[in-house]
Amino acid sequence: MITIAEDAAEAVGQVLDGSTVLLGGFGNPGQPMELIDALLDSGARDLTVVNNNAGQADAGLALLIKERRVAKMICSFPRQSDSWHFDEAYRAGEIELELVPQGNLAERLRAAGAGIGGFFTPTGYGTVLAEGKETRVIDGRGYVLEQPLPGDIALIKALRADEAGNLVYRKTARNFGPVMAAAAARTVVQVDELVPVGGIDPEHVITPGIHVNTVTVIPTASGEAALKEIA
């Protein structure tokens, strides 16, 4: 059973200090901006945040970092032209960085959701990002042991949910949503549209409701345009 929350604040609720928070999105598509704002308002601190990047400009994750609420960032690409809040915190030694190749990041999340205790990947073998990690040569090829990456809470965005928590995403906004939903103990989803049970063709469900705990409806510009398109 899922909970339908009235707004982002209720959906995010109490996040304990020190939690590991999985934040969906790659670029703007799939970023649960309103849920991140609610996380900021909740006051939770000493967070470990997992996202592909480390915040952009003056919004969302960048503001969490600016307010020094993030103790550790686990990401693949922190440095961007507009990642100034992360850059400043990092150079001041006020945020820890765990740099993970993008595919290893996705697969570590997938492994956590799938109950896999670790996996050997060729990505990163022989590089500084594999230093200190167990390696193995399998059929003549080098592999690195990577650990699963579970979260206490996932904040993600989808286009549509039904009241059973089944999710449909839109285009490249899907990105990390499905693997983060499965990898977190509690998954909170913001959607543009909530439909009754049966309102999504079961063949079209991308994330089954078993991976979802809370849904809240937050209309966004991109979702509005998309829903008009298919209406």
Partner: peptide
């Protein structure tokens, strides 16, 4: 706004396009 490439630049989709999540995308690669 929901359709960008890895460089975060808006792109278009061609007939026959498909979308998938990040773990599938990198499994395709790896």
């Amino acid at each position: 706004h929901d359709l960008i490439n890895a460089g975060k630049i808006p792109v278009t989709e061609l007939p026959g396009a498909s979308y998938f999540h990040h773990a599938d995308s990198f499994a395709m690669m790896r």
